[in-house]
Design a protein around this nucleic acid. Structure first.
Lengths: 223, 223
DNA sequence: ACATTTGTTAATAAATTGTTAAGTTTTATA
DNA sequence: TATAAAACTTAACAATTTATTAACAAATGT
């Protein structure tokens, strides 16, 4: 199985494409290199599932923005243009041709990888950190973890809320009981433990990582 | 003792090297200036413990990327290339020669310092002051040492807190017992010793440096 | 009446803590 | 400075406390 995302790199300067290719390979992508505009188009034709295309502007056969325009006619794949000089003219043409990003030489290959990943994120090709983690909504009594809704019972939800809204702070079982059950609750404080256990299970990995037992004191949501 | 980190600056334009040197000096570094490529190599030869090397590309004798390549052959010291024009050729050669960063003239010396420090941080040459030393948080019952969380038990944490919040002051075992255990604790005061030992172990080096025994009296957190 | 949630209990597991005792270091003093 | 006494350190152990888990019973809502 090879599920690595493909990145097409087109530059007539082999040392540049090799350099860029190396960085993307190191970052876990599969790279396809072309050395002129016509070849770039051919490679794209064979790999329309590519995750992104990086085009140098100055290339023989067909220049970068010609290639860009032709790809754009058939695909919305993210396109990044490389240019030697930050000239307004080139920039304009490039964007008009439908490029998504502009990277001016000299550039740091590491930065180029980051920019491409930003575009992939935009297209949901790679996971967005934004919808990672936990969201809690008192109004709807719902909690989302990594974009998926959790099936929590009321008590579980309220305990989670209480800890979540006071992240970092340690609460004793008694404090949790009076916050969630009410000050007049007569029950055993082991009850809290049971709920914590259930909550942890439902939160999976995230639960064990963030709902911490503070031995001898109680529980906390660790940031 | 002079523990300042050394920065080698090579530029054939004295005004530039003087300017850059001033900024690094102001930031607490020691600078070594060379005015051509050959000299840069010679200086590096005498100072292979330099923390970073800043090379102008256009230099007499040996140009920047020749110097870069030669240094790279023997050292992984961070190398920053300075270039007047964002030319593709220079760019390429520089990265190929193993430079870590590229800074295009005109540049702000302050920014250059920042970039260099980012590289030093990457190589752990300078510590991030943000997470230096000890932090104690009663709310979350956590103690951080140099950015890492300590796994302290309640008693350990409270003893540490007590000493930490009264830095410099000496406490007898009895005082510590009544502060942490409560005035009615009936146990042996050797108990405190055990906890101190465990605390010291968990605090490692920092522990032995700061938690001091005052013979015949008790303990203190020494500043 | 059914399924779901909630509370309780008890067995088990885990961690903290206090104590002891042997070994060091420090201090006082002869 | 040698020696003894006092004070401290350390490690190991056992006792204790505390937490987890699962299974079950009660309550709740549909």
């Amino acid at each position: 199985m090879d599920s690595a995302l493909k990145i097409i790199i087109a530059d007539d300067e082999p040392r540049i494409s090799a350099l860029v290719s190396d960085f993307f390979t190191a970052a876990g992508y599969k790279t396809l290199v072309a050395s002129d505009g016509a070849e770039a188009l051919a490679v794209f034709g064979e790999n329309t599932d590519a995750a992104a295309v990086i085009l140098d502007i100055m290339m023989p056969e067909k220049n970068g923005w010609e290639v860009c325009r032709e790809i754009r006619a058939v695909s919305s794949v993210p396109i990044i243009m490389l240019t030697a000089r930050a000239e307004e003219f080139d920039q304009l043409m490039g964007f008009e041709a439908g490029a998504d990003e502009y990277v001016t030489k000299p550039f740091s290959p590491a930065v180029l990888v980051k920019r491409v990943e930003a575009l992939l994120r935009r297209d949901r090709k790679i996971e967005d950190d934004a919808d990672k983690g936990l969201t809690v909504n008192r109004e709807s009594y719902t909690a989302m973890l990594d974009g998926k809704q959790l099936e929590l019972t009321v008590k579980e939800f309220e305990i989670l809320c209480y800890l979540w809204e006071n992240k970092g702070r340690v609460f004793s079982r008694e404090q949790i009981l009076s916050a969630v059950w009410g000050y007049d609750f007569e029950g055993d404080s082991r009850t809290v433990d049971s709920h914590m256990a259930r909550l942890r299970i439902k939160l999976g990995d995230y639960g064990s990582r963030h709902i911490k037992t503070v031995y001898g004191l109680g529980y906390k949501f660790e940031v």
